[in-house]
Amino acid sequence: MTTVLLVDDQALLRMGFRLVIESTDDLDVVGEASDGASAIEQVAALAPDVVLMDIRMPRMDGIEATRRIVAEHPAVRVLVLTTFDVDEYAFAALRAGASGFLLKNARPDELLDAIRTVATGSSVVAPRVVRRMLDLFARHLPSGQPDDGDAAGDGLDPRLRALTPRELDVLRGIADGLSNAEIAERLVLSATTVKTHVGNVLAKLAVRDRVQAVIAAYECGLVEPGQGFRTR
């Protein structure tokens, strides 16, 4: 049974989500919250598997709540609710650690599939969509990118220095929205080898999934919004 916490400042929306979720045998709503601050308290008390998180709420918005929940409860997955498919607030939530975002007008089956997907540790947003959001919004958001004058003098972010040249190639493929099979074809490697490299990249960058890897590639300077990859 996958447990879900509903976070939205509109009671009618929470009721609708609850009815849909509790119509299944494998999902269960264990609590509700009307703002980010209450969501943090509920996560600590209930330890849900997935938090269905609204963004614009009173007291504390969903972005800050997501950041704190992910930091304090790494096993909890956050699925962000948004009104627009390309939304700077949704992108900020992904950077805060959300595992994906879902449109509020999604069909019931899409909602259920999204919850099940993030519960397994996967993402509900394609890396290509993240790249599109980067191109649109990243220039207006703090990147957290260090100065180019690093101690090693190679222009690489310290996190990237932990990667082998082949792992950097794989990260470029991930950031380009490629599947493992497509990366394997590009690099002339077996799919099994690419899968191993992907696992190493995620572990070394300390990110949860491919979406977070795309964002890390931007933050480390490997990808420049609207310009593709830097040449190293």
Rank of each mutant, 00 (worst) to 15 (best):
V43K: 08
P74R: 07
V76M: 02
A47T: 13
A39H: 08
A75F: 00
V30F: 07
T66L: 10
L52N: 02
E32I: 03
S38R: 15
L27R: 01
S23C: 08
R56K: 14
E64G: 03
R56G: 01
A44F: 10
I21V: 06
D26V: 04
R68H: 14
F17H: 06
A37E: 15
R56Y: 05
E32C: 05
V70Q: 09
R14C: 01
I55L: 15
V76T: 13
H73R: 13
E64Q: 11
V50M: 11
E32R: 07
D61H: 03
E72T: 04
R14H: 04
G31T: 04
R56F: 02
V76R: 01
P58K: 10
T24H: 08
R59M: 12
D28F: 10
V20N: 02
I21D: 00
V20D: 07
R18Y: 03
A33W: 11
M57N: 14
Q42L: 06
A47D: 14
F17A: 01
R18S: 12
L46T: 09
A39F: 09
G16V: 02
E41W: 11
E41S: 15
E72R: 00
I55S: 07
F17K: 00
F17C: 00
D26K: 05
I69Q: 01
D49G: 02
F17I: 02
I69P: 03
R67M: 11
I21T: 03
P58I: 06
A65W: 08
A45E: 15
T24D: 07
T66S: 13
I55R: 10
H73T: 05
G62W: 01
A39G: 04
D28L: 11
V50R: 00
V20L: 02
T24L: 08
F17M: 06
L46Q: 15
I55A: 08
R77F: 01
A37W: 11
I55H: 14
V43G: 14
G31K: 09
V29H: 03
T24N: 04
D26R: 02
D26S: 10
R59C: 08
E64N: 06
I69K: 03
I40L: 15
A37D: 14
T24F: 04
P48T: 09
P48S: 14
G31W: 07
I21Y: 07
V29P: 08
R14D: 10
E32L: 05
H73W: 06
R18N: 07
R68E: 15
E22N: 14
D26F: 04
M53C: 12
G16E: 03
I21L: 09
A45M: 14
T66W: 12
D49S: 10
